[in-house]
Design a protein around this nucleic acid. Structure first.
Lengths: 151, 151
DNA sequence: GGCATTCTATACCAAGTTAATAGACTTACT
DNA sequence: AGTAAGTCTATTAACTTGGTATAGAATGCC
């Protein structure tokens, strides 16, 4: 279960936009403050624009801004725009995979995995991150013993 | 959040071994019944052997078997053996990433994501899959409306 | 109008990963 | 001996990922 650099960069950029709102933020500023290669960042921001999460303005006073309030954009929204479905197994959506014989309940497990991811990633908004305050359901997960220990 | 073919194949193979237990199962039989390329499967089974989840016997009456009871092997165990840590961000473990400025709470989110994955993947054992009966906590997740709908 | 500034768009490249294959070798049973 | 398995290492081909390059188009200032 690998989170790519693209997703990480996209989320960090969105947070920077939320912090800078309602003013526009220049790409170069996000790139330096988050240590993201500028051209790569621009590619990602363009995807976010196509996905309707970001608006952009060119020219002297140009920059990027959120297309809607940060509180209405979940982390799952951002991930889906830059990477597609939250969970996929061998490139396919969990529910479309055909298993043979006794392995069949594995599909249900992938569905459950996706549901678990949604529980987290659809509960947290960009505004939550920018404010530094996560929803209580998430805080409860983090408070559990062992949550911080690698296995 | 991508599940690779290797992980999928490994899990399916483990289920086949659980179903065939206590007898040894030949690699070729797993390969055909689960449509997995034989040589690739053998590589994976070897990793599983190194990881202490599978035992192997050569020769005429040889084959593969589980190294311990199927009820004591969780899906997370299998995934960790063939692919490493359950969740990683840009190749690093979630808790080791350094975020700058306001993006910092993102780390906590990745920790929560890992915890969510553990809730599912450490709760389900190979025996559960082989028996076709998932734990009640998982069944509850699947029963929720929307769990089966792609977003 | 000219110009600097900033985003847009597409193409490209290098490195790494993944899926899959090959082949020579070892073990174990008959 | 012979044969049917697993063992081990190397290799290949395709794909993905992270990152770069370059030409272009909009915006606003002088």
């Amino acid at each position: 279960m690998h989170v790519t650099a693209r997703v990480d960069y996209a989320l960090r950029a969105m947070v920077e936009l939320a912090v800078g709102a309602p003013q526009l933020v220049k790409g170069a500023r996000i790139a330096t403050s988050q240590s993201i290669p500028l051209k790569l960042l621009e590619n990602i921001l363009l995807d976010l624009k196509y996905g309707g999460l970001v608006r952009a303005q060119r020219g002297f006073e140009g920059g990027y801004g959120l297309a809607k309030p940060a509180a209405e954009i979940t982390l799952a929204d951002v991930i889906r725009v830059v990477e597609g479905p939250l969970a996929n197994v061998r490139g396919e959506r969990p529910e479309t995979i055909g298993y043979k014989g006794k392995a069949e309940p594995l599909r249900d497990v992938w569905i459950a995995v996706r549901a678990a991811l949604r529980n987290v990633l659809e509960a947290v908004t960009i505004a939550d991150i920018a404010a530094g305050e996560l929803p209580s359901t998430i805080k409860r997960m983090l408070a559990k013993p062992g949550a911080w220990l690698p296995h």
